[in-house]
Design a protein around this nucleic acid. Structure first.
Lengths: 202, 202, 202, 202
DNA sequence: GATGAATGAGCATTCATTCAT
DNA sequence: CATGAATGAATGCTCATTCAT
């Protein structure tokens, strides 16, 4: 008998429920931030009971951490995959810009995630730093492959640039995908050629 | 000397106390964020009673707003003053980088301020947006004076770059003023000439 | 006996707990008034935790409203039932007097209830007025059945009379049921025949 | 020199200020009740500083007591004076009704006074009881002068009747003086002749 | 006397977390 | 495993009262 679909509703609900909680938490933490999100709301949105959340996550901080982790990992995994399709450093940098902007554009609704996290939770702080480092390192590697000096600072600068250019997605409801794509091209070009390049002279 | 009724502590302590509260709140909000800061702590650090805080600020949100406002205004005022001393666009851009990095460097302890603010409070959200706009506009003006196209995006990109380059100040306790100055020069140069300029080639 | 899943404490404790809270609140609101009663006291007297009160009632005002509502409804229901046992208008009026005085006599301890309620809460004010109207209407109907003119004013006057005659129950600890019964007869007679009737002439 | 009006603004401001506080407190306690009235509001309405209230009254309860005392005394004094103008018991009873209703009618705005007082303050409770006794005694005396039996109960009943008939003044904004006068006549007649008198038969 | 800034005890309410069912 | 009723620590805010000026 293949599958065994009648043995208590599939092999196990655990992953399903865990995922439902993470999805709900992502949506709520993302749109309202850590402190304004109630565990009860997460449970309701996930379609389970409040207590059940605690079967999967030790506490609110851990849940936030798990949500962040999953999101960051996804961000990084997708980016890594995207980068494999590019060969030139310039192509890779453009791909990074594209990924950074579009990833958030697709998540318009809930992108406050990286903003409001509890400052006390050391594990969480450590994770956020790790993620930033991993992202920075990835960009840095692209630059190192192109034999750039100051690769780390360049990497930080590029990410910062992208992050600010992304900001309007949050605040401007009229922001379109075309706007996003314009900014992608802009960022990649500015980073490589600088503001003094002919492009920005009238 | 006859009279001297305002010799001892100035005519009124009101500004003094208001300032003490703002200072305390700046320090705590800045280091622990809005939600992790207790009004009682602010009062204690300010050396006054809990209730006194409410003589000067309607509630916790208003206090946070006032703190943010004072800090942002100071940032902008000092920056505007600094810019007057520069004549060339390049000089001004360098001054902006210097101001951005050193302003936060001098406030190492409490610069999480712009991070965790309550998402609810509309007045506060509006203010934060206004500040970002004002800062962006100021940089934009420098670029427009230099006849740059896409001045707004350039401005956002530059600020984003600076903001990320500033980040390590927060997390790296060993960050020195020399590090800051190095990043200042780096940012200004990268922004103008781009990563492809000879400088970053090995 | 097999099954018996609802043997121990009934199917659900919810009504029990709700009732326990209402009882505790009735006792405390009744004896100390709205403002002097602490939610913590209500919880303690009900044998539950503070927070539990809020699972059953949105806030202190709602709890007070619920207490008042239950008491008034009980008063009215019992009165209506009592009136059915009487046939003549005079019998009904006597029954009203009896009910009014004895109802409060049995609740000696906590009958300040109708006195101090928050003037703010509009819903509460509206309810109190409604109750007075319902009570007045009921008495009025008895009078209308007896073809009385000015039934509404008569009704108000009668209720007022009873209410004041009840007052000593609150303040005089030595007040006996016999005292109550004397006043009942007195009120009914006075209302019908007036002070000039031979009864009150020496 | 008569008067001496330039010696520091009259002989003394004390009575003036005391009266201003009492007036303000009467108005506020009367319209909002004890608990909803803030000392700061009283001071503001009286045109003085908060602290000054405490130069004249030990605390909030004492102020409430003083306000009640002044009002009750005025009520009793005026009533006593009014009664002197009447000779017959019937005339006196009518005068009592008139005084009770019109006194409150003239104070439409603030007649919640006797309602919400703090239950704890023993002195205040004692005073309220004393006032009720004094009022009852006065009415009782009128009845005793007419050789009535059960004068005390009659007195309580009459007062209760008047008090309820007065109630609509509070709740019905359209209540006119004519309404008041109608009720006055009604109350006096009902009390003397009873509901069974021909008057209330259709 | 008069002021009003300062105080701090006091309380309603919230919500993460637990645990008996 | 799942539930959700119950818990109670934690905190923002109010306001009567005091007292230095």
């Amino acid at each position: 008998m293949s599958g065994g679909s009648n043995e208590r509703e599939g092999k196990s609900d655990k992953p399903d429920k865990q995922r439902a909680i993470l999805d709900a938490a992502f949506s709520l933490f993302g749109s309202k931030g850590f402190y304004e999100t109630r565990i009860a709301e997460v449970a309701e949105l996930a379609g389970i009971a409040k207590g059940t959340v605690y079967l999967y996550f030790r506490n609110k901080e851990e849940l936030f951490l798990a949500v962040s982790r999953r999101d960051c990992e996804q961000f990084m995994t997708q980016l890594a995959a995207r980068l494999k399709r590019e060969e030139t450093p310039a192509g890779k940098l453009a791909a990074i810009a594209e990924h950074h902007l579009l990833y958030y554009y697709e998540r318009k609704q809930h992108t406050k995630l990286f903003f409001r996290a509890p400052t006390n939770h050391p594990e969480l702080m450590a994770f956020m730093q790790q993620f930033m480092e991993a992202y920075t390192n990835l960009v840095q590697q692209v630059l190192l492959d192109a034999d750039a000096a100051e690769a780390q600072l360049l990497s930080q600068a590029y990410i910062g640039m992208l992050d600010r250019l992304k900001m309007d997605i949050l605040f401007d409801p009229a922001f379109t995908e075309a706007d996003a794509r314009h900014r992608i091209a802009f960022a990649a070009d500015l980073f490589l050629r600088g503001a003094e390049s002919g492009k920005y002279k009238h």
